[in-house]
Amino acid sequence: MQVSVKVLRFNPETDSKPHYETYTVEQEPSDRVLDALNTIKWHIDGTLTYRRSCAHGVCGSDAMRINGRNRLACKLLIKDVGSTITVEPIMGFEVIKDLVVDMEPFFDSYKKIKPFLINDDAPPVGSERYQSAEDRARFDDTTKCILCACCTTSCPIVWTNQGYVGPATIVQAHRFIYDSRDQGADQRLNILNDRNGVWRCRTIFNCTDACPRGIKVTQAIEQVKRTLLTGE
C-alpha cells in the first residue's frame, strides 16, 4: 500500500529550525513504521536519521512520536496506523538530528536512583539467595522496562519541569524497592520523596498508555507513593 510519511527533520549543521518533509513509500500493511523509515533512508533520502537496532520492541532504541503518540517505530504496524503517518522526535529532550534526541539527561536521571541491587550481607556460598515466587512476582512488571523513554517523554510534567525524575526512573526504582533481596529501599525512597520525586506525578496515565512493554507505570508510581505514606 502507498503510505505518506511526514517527518519532522532537523539537521544542526544546516538548519536553524526544524521543518517537515513528506515522503511517499510503498509498504506492506504488515510492515512496521520502522520499515517505512528504512525505505526512505535507503532509497529516497540517506540523510534521514534515527536510532534503531533490534526492530522488534526489546532494545528501546526507536522511541518516537507517531501520529502524536509515543511509540516504538518497530512495534507499530502500518496497517494499525494508516496510510498517513506523522513522525516526530520524542518531546522533552534536546533534538540532536531528525528523530535522534539527547538521551544523556534520561540516563543521568536513571543512574541517580541507584539502579542496582543493594545488599551488604554476604551471599550464601555456592548457592543462590532464595526468593519465593510471590516475592519475585511483586516487582515482575517493572523488570520489563527497556529504558526507551516513551513514558518519560509522554509526561506533561517532564515537558514543563526539567527537574522531575520522570516515570522511567521511578519504574527502575520500583524494580528494586520491592525486591525482597534488596536493602536499599530507604535510600531510593528518600530520593523519590523529594519535590522532584514521585509527588510531581499527577496520575495523568500518559506513561502507562505510552509504554510499549505494557508496564502499569502509573500503578507503580502510586505504589511508591503509598509506601512513602504508610511505610508498607
Binding site: L117, P123, Q131, A133
Partner: peptide, 12 residues
C-alpha cells in the same frame, strides 16, 4: 547475587 530476577521454584 548481582540481583538477576530468575523465575523461582516453590522452594525459592
Amino acid at each position: 547475587h548481582m540481583g538477576l530476577p530468575f523465575n523461582r521454584t516453590p522452594e525459592g
